[in-house]
Nucleic acid binder design. Structure first.
Length: 875
RNA sequence: GAGAUAUUAGCUCAGUUGGUUCAGAGCAUCGCCUUGACAGGGCGGGGGUCACUGGUUCGAGUCCAGUAUAUCUCACCA
């Protein structure tokens, strides 16, 4: 069957993927082999594939396929998480389109819609991963809200609560009024905004005097419960003990003194709103101030807002400024730039808000996790992230694990009374009832009197268990799967979630299994567009990965992603990278076409082919060593580049040209067979990177019953350096002749003659000279003891090579060339000699270095005398 | 404001514990070749005062200090 001149990926990709699935090659179960495990960073169940996923999952697939071919029991566990905030936001938005408000629904009704949404959109992303070639064990696909996974989460909550590590607290949280939930400090993005600084004057109670203070948020004056100055500030010392009247509210509040106030800023006087500012809250606690909350959950003003009740906070700001002006309390307004916290999820301006939240004490839990990374039991790649990690873990704050949402794991706490402590934590309602009866001392307490907390747990509170819970290690820590697969080997994820997720998984690992969750964490770069912006849906600057795959082939896109993505470095994405990947596919495909086009006859290899085969084999071994080294250092893009050059430069450009028969002549059977074998070896090495193409070529090379995906990877056991060196020498000769052809416009049709003057160097073996003869298109290569006058010349090591040409050689030019070379070599020799004459160098440098310097000096010396001889003759 | 990391060819990056006088790769670019696998090809070039300034050393892209710029993290004053 004739092969198409162009490689068409789409045809073979689905074919092989289905075949691999049918053969269950991706499936893993516990056996005697050494395990190699990766758990996928679970993407949002309702999300679609973006470029970050492409990069991330390509890397994981490379690692897992390589491990599989190295004979390990490779297990890649896929799955998704429920992404509370993002999913709930999407469901709310969709309901709004249908004219339904979330608040009009019961919790169960809403969850019904959420599940419907999840079933409809859920798993799309996992389907898309198949297109990329991801060899996940799909039988193990997990979702963080599966029954067993949910049970694990609740069990951990109950356990940590009973250990005294989870507590309920009244805290200032970052409130997202749009999503109506809290977000963590890490999810707040501070943005530079052009605001105003309003100078307001408050009348001193019982006097006609005023104090002036500055604020960016005049609407919060309705929540003011004090005005504060610095105790060291002489401007205000006479006011000690007095009170002021808050304008609009006409409320009397105390004047207090606190070191917190910066005397330089504004007027040196600060209004205190404990309910709506973290610093004010702390000052309020120090001075036992009243707390007045003026906002509703959607950031409109509540009944404390007086006549502004129901008005949005920003609208209120405008209105109240007008009122203050009318009242004569507005002194002046300045333009002012400040940083405003916004929600990473919704973009809404964060409203600091006091509320009851559930917290996990982190300080103690963080200790083993910090140690594990600092002592490299868990290796971070690249290492630079250790600093960031340490900084976080040493300053870790308690984790706010509650979210004011419905979609997620509902907090297993039941309230039975109005008191702060009138609640119990339990796995089930029945258990809760029993505990509540005990705790309350009321044996008659009924189920109907219990009310479960309305909030759900932070999504990370389920995903931090991921490497354990996917193997059921929380509920059942002694089960054979967790014993076998845990700790997993590598985790591949983005540095942005090093703390959110990675650190917390390490914490959970030590807390629940007394063991790290993975050996190494490979932190990928962030995929950016050409302008250096992060790729995001909202910017619309991300190409559709599926379209890319259709255009360049999965293999091409995989290669494009891998080529320029060293760990931890950003990846400025360019489609040209995928193009390079596609070109590489095509190159390999055409090499296959060449091979398949040859007519094969019984016979023996030529001397050149013999040498070529010897060399190619050793070159593969050499490359395998390099690749192995790259993988050990997680330098995946370097490993791929090594494969790329091995195939393109060595195999296609050099080897195939050596063994290629003359036009329309047949090839001998031995060379053909060996070439097919070498080609197959290359496909094995390529497979983890380009699985589809390599599998196809593997089967095209010969009819086989075994598939490449499970074929053992060749292992480097050393290589013959002499053969490599001999080939390099031959290649330099070829390059020398080609340069002469190029320079003098001598085409390939003109057969040339080469003379080699070895100058004491050992002559290149005959079969390697045959390579030179073939690739440089020579009629003969003859040794010579003397210079060939009038010939073009070049040097390889210390050997002189002459190519006689019927040209008018300009003696002047020749003289100049030689003189230049002489000058260079002499300079070189001087610098080397200086070192050798330097006592400190001789004393300080290692023996190897000194030896190398001596050899350099000797080689240079020899070349110099050779050139000097030539110069003598020219003169 | 504090800290971390970086700064090497037009672009993206290598450069291992300091040790070749031409600092490497891929892509891009340029010239030439080209009817015989592949123009998505072959061959060969050009291109860098290794951000800057000092220092340590026999020797610095590599180590140290400072400066500049960039990115990230943390903290943020109304």
């Amino acid at each position: 069957m004739e092969l198409a001149p162009k490689f068409t990926p789409s045809e073979i990709e689905s074919k092989w993927y289905q075949h691999w699935i049918d053969q269950q090659y991706f499936h893993s179960q516990v056996d005697e082999r050494e395990p190699y495990t990766i758990v996928i960073p679970p993407p949002n169940v309702t999300g679609v594939l973006h470029m970050g996923h492409m990069l991330n999952n390509t890397l994981q697939d490379v690692l897992i396929r390589r491990a599989r071919m190295l004979g390990k029991n490779a297990c890649w566990v896929p799955g998704t998480d429920h992404a509370s905030i993002a999913t709930e936001a999407k469901v709310v938005a969709k309901l709004r389109e249908q004219g339904i408000k979330k608040n009009d629904l019961s919790r169960d009704e809403f969850l019904g819609h959420a599940w419907e949404w999840t079933h409809k959109h859920g798993g799309i992303i996992l389907q898309q991963l198949r297109k990329l070639g991801a060899s996940c064990d799909w039988d193990r696909t997990k979702f963080t809200m599966d029954d067993d996974m949910s049970e694990s989460v609740l069990q951990v909550f109950v356990d940590l609560y009973r250990k005294g590590l989870i507590y309920r607290g009244f805290r200032m949280v970052n409130w997202d009024p749009e999503a109506k939930t809290t977000v963590s400090d890490e999810e707040v993005i501070y943005k530079e905004k052009n605001g105003k600084l309003f100078y307001l004057r408050y009348q001193i109670e019982g006097e006609e005097n005023f104090v002036t203070l500055a604020t960016t948020r005049p609407e919060t004056i309705l929540g003011d419960t004090a005005v504060c100055y610095n105790p060291n500030d002489p401007r205000f010392s006479h006011l000690a003990g007095k009170r002021v009247i808050v304008p609009v509210a006409n409320r009397s509040v105390p004047l207090i003194a606190d070191d917190y106030v910066d005397m330089e800023f504004g007027t040196g006087c600060l209004k205190i709103t404990p309910a709506h500012d973290l610093n004010d809250k702390e000052i309020g606690e120090r001075h036992q101030l009243e707390i007045i909350d003026i906002f509703n959950d959607d950031a409109t003003l509540n009944e404390q807002g007086l006549h502004y009740q129901g008005v949005d906070r920003f609208e209120c700001r405008k209105l109240i400024v007008k009122e203050l002006e009318a009242l004569g309390n507005l002194v002046k307004v300045e333009d002012y730039q400040n940083k405003v916290g916004t929600s990473e999820r919704t973009g809404a301006v964060i409203e600091p808000k006091l509320s009851y939240q559930w917290f996990l004490k982190m300080e103690h839990l963080a200790q083993p996790a910090l140690k594990a990374v600092m002592e490299d039991q868990v290796q971070l790649v690249p290492e630079k992230f250790k600093n960031t990690y340490r900084h976080w873990m040493e300053n870790v704050r308690d984790w706010n694990i509650s979210r004011q949402l419905w979609w997620g794991h509902r907090i297993p706490a039941w309230f039975y009374g109005e008191g702060f402590d009138d609640f119990v934590v339990a796995m089930t309602q029945a258990e809760a009832l029993e505990l509540a009866r005990q705790k309350s001392g009321n044996a008659q307490l009924q189920l109907q009197q219990l009310h479960q907390d309305e909030d759900v747990l932070d999504t990370w509170f389920s995903s931090w268990l991921w490497p354990i819970s996917v193997f059921d290690g929380i509920r059942n820590p002694e089960n054979p799967e967790i014993k076998y697969y845990y700790p997993t080997n590598d985790l591949v994820t983005a540095p942005e979630i090093l703390f959110f997720w990675v650190a917390r998984m390490i914490v959970a690992g030590y807390e629940y299994l007394g063991e790290k969750p993975f050996n190494a964490v490979y932190l990928t770069g962030i995929v950016r567009d050409k302008l250096g912006r992060k790729m995001s849906k909202s910017l619309g600057n991300s190409p559709d990965p599926i379209e890319l795959i259709e255009k360049y082939g999965a293999d091409g896109v995989r290669m494009g992603m891998l080529l320029t993505s060293p760990a931890g470095n950003d990846l400025p994405f360019d489609e040209a990278l995928c193009e390079q990947g596609r070109n590489f596919s095509n190159k390999i495909w055409n090499a296959l076409r060449l091979l398949k086009g040859w007519q094969v006859v019984e016979g023996n290899p030529s001397a050149a082919a013999e040498a070529g085969m010897q060399w190619m084999e050793q070159r593969i071994y050499q490359s395998l060593q390099i690749i192995e080294d790259h993988f050990q250092k997680y330098r995946i893009s370097d490993a791929l580049m090594t494969v790329y050059k091995l195939i393109w430069d060595d195999f296609c450009s050099s080897y195939l040209e050596i063994v290629k028969p003359n036009y329309q002549e047949p090839i001998d059977s031995k060379t053909y067979e060996q070439t097919a074998i070498l080609f197959g070896e290359l496909m094995k090495i390529l497979h983890p990177f380009m699985p589809f193409l390599s599998e196809e070529v593997w089967h095209q090379l010969e009819a086989r019953t075994t598939d490449l995906i499970i074929t053992p990877m060749p292992v480097a056991t050393g290589f013959n350096e002499e053969i490599i060196a001999q080939f390099d020498r031959a290649q330099e000769m070829v390059i020398g002749v080609r340069n002469i052809r190029n320079k003098h416009n001598v085409g390939a049709r003109e057969v040339l003659h080469l003379h080699v003057q070895n100058n004491g160097e050992k002559a290149l073996p005959e079969h390697f000279l045959s390579i030179v003869k073939k690739l440089a298109i020579l009629s003969d290569i003859t040794p010579t003891e003397v210079e060939i006058e009038g010939a073009q010349r070049f040097m390889v090591n210390t050997s002189a090579c002459y190519v006689p040409l019927e040209l008018n050689v300009d003696p002047e030019e020749e003289l100049q060339k030689l003189t230049e070379e002489l000058k260079y070599l002499q300079g070189f020799l001087v610098s080397v000699s200086k070192k050798l004459e330097n006592e400190r160098f001789m004393a300080g440098a290692p023996a190897q270095v000194v030896e190398m310097e001596r050899k350099k000096a000797a080689d240079a010396q020899q070349k110099i005398s050779f050139i000097q001889d030539q110069l003598k003759r020219l003169n």
